[in-house]
C-alpha cells in the first residue's frame, strides 16, 4: 500500500509538471521557440485565481472565477505575443530563450508587487475533501489534477492532429516562409498559440494552487517541467505528459528510499542521463542538417 500511495501522489504531482511541460511543447511545436517563462505563467495563473477568489481580494465564486482566470491568462498570452514575442520573429531560438528567461524575472517581480511575497492559500473547493480507497488516501485535488491533465492532453493532441488551426500551427513552425506562401497567417497563428499556452498554464496554476500553498517562487516548478519535457522529447505532447509523470513519480520514491540530500538530485540526474544517452528524449524526433 505504501508503494501505491507514493505512486499516486507522485502521479498527481507529475501531472502538474506534465501540464506545464505541455505549455512548453505547445509553443515549441508551433513556433519553434522555447518559453522558459511557462512556469512563471503558471504561477501568474494561480495568483490571478487567488486575486479573483480569495476573500481578501475580490472574493468571487470559484466556478465563476475559473473561466475568468482562463480568459485573463489567454489574453495575457496573446498580448505578450503582440507586444514582445512578435518582434522576435525569425530570430534565433536562443535569443527567444533568453528573452523568456528575462520575462520570467519581470513576471515574478510584477506578481510580488501585486500579491505580496507572503505565501497564500487558494480558497478552492478542491482543497477540502479526501477520498479513501483501501489504505490509500487521495485528496480531491489530486484526483482533479489527474483527470484534468488527461483530458487536456487528449484535447491538445486532437487539436494538433485534426483541426485546421492545429495543422497551420505545425506548418508555421517548420518553415515560416513556406507557411507564408501557403497562405497561413503565421503571425496570427503564433498569437493563438501563445494565448493557448496561457490558458494551459492557468489550468496548471489553478490545480497547483488547489494542492497546496502558493508562493512567488512557484514559477521555478518550470525547471522541473522543463526536465519533464526534455525527458519526454520536446515536440511530443504525450511525451511531455509521460516525462512529467516520470519526474513526478521519481521524486517521492527518491525521497523515501535515498538518503536525505540525494533525493532532490534524482530528477536532474535522470535529465542528464537522458540528454547524454537519448539526446532527443524518449519520444524522439530526428535532427539532421542537410547540406
Amino acid at each position: 500500500m505504501d508503494v501505491l500511495q507514493l505512486l499516486l501522489s507522485g502521479l498527481a504531482n507529475g501531472c502538474v509538471y506534465g501540464l506545464v511541460a505541455l505549455g512548453f511543447v505547445l509553443i515549441y511545436k508551433a513556433t519553434e521557440a522555447v518559453n522558459f517563462a511557462q512556469g512563471d505563467f503558471m504561477m501568474l495563473g494561480a495568483y490571478v485565481m487567488v486575486g479573483l477568489v480569495n476573500p481578501e481580494f475580490l472574493g468571487l465564486n470559484f466556478w465563476v472565477a475559473v473561466p475568468l482566470a482562463l480568459l485573463i491568462l489567454g489574453a495575457l498570452g496573446y498580448l505578450l505575443d503582440l507586444t514582445v514575442i512578435r518582434f522576435m520573429f525569425g530570430q534565433s531560438q536562443t535569443s527567444v530563450v533568453i528573452l523568456t528567461i528575462a520575462l520570467g524575472y519581470v513576471i515574478r517581480f510584477a506578481a510580488g508587487l501585486i500579491w505580496g511575497h507572503e505565501p497564500v492559500n487558494l480558497h478552492s473547493p478542491l482543497a477540502l475533501g479526501d477520498v479513501r480507497m483501501g489504505g490509500v488516501v487521495l485528496s480531491l485535488a489530486d484526483i482533479a489534477v489527474i483527470v484534468v491533465t488527461l483530458l487536456m492532453t487528449l484535447f491538445l493532441f486532437q487539436f494538433f492532429q485534426r483541426t485546421k488551426l492545429g495543422l497551420a500551427m505545425q506548418a508555421a513552425s517548420q518553415n515560416q516562409m513556406a507557411a507564408y506562401y501557403m497562405g497561413i497567417p503565421v503571425r496570427r497563428v503564433q498569437g493563438a498559440v501563445w494565448a493557448l499556452a496561457g490558458v494551459v498554464a492557468c489550468v496548471a496554476g489553478i490545480l497547483y494552487a488547489s494542492k497546496g500553498t502558493l508562493a512567488i517562487s512557484a514559477g521555478f516548478i518550470g525547471i522541473k517541467a522543463f526536465a519533464a519535457a526534455v525527458i519526454g522529447g520536446f515536440g511530443s505532447l504525450p511525451g511531455a505528459l509521460m516525462g512529467g509523470i516520470i519526474v513526478g513519480v521519481i521524486e517521492p520514491f527518491a525521497a523515501r528510499y535515498l538518503p536525505t540530500g540525494y533525493s532532490q538530485i534524482a530528477p536532474y540526474a535522470l535529465l542528464i542521463l537522458v540528454l547524454v544517452f537519448r539526446p532527443h528524449g524518449l519520444f524522439a524526433q530526428v535532427r539532421v542538417k542537410k547540406v
Binding site: I223, Q264, I265, I272
Partner: peptide, 28 residues
C-alpha cells in the same frame, strides 16, 4: 564531452541541470 552532441536549447538545459545539481552536491 558528453554534451558535445547537444545543440542549442538542449545544451542550455544540460548545463542548467548541472548548475542545479552543483547546488545539492555542495550540500552533500
Amino acid at each position: 564531452i558528453p554534451a558535445l552532441k547537444l545543440h542549442g536549447v538542449y545544451l542550455s538545459i544540460f548545463t542548467l541541470a548541472l548548475a542545479i545539481l552543483a547546488d545539492d552536491i555542495i550540500v552533500i
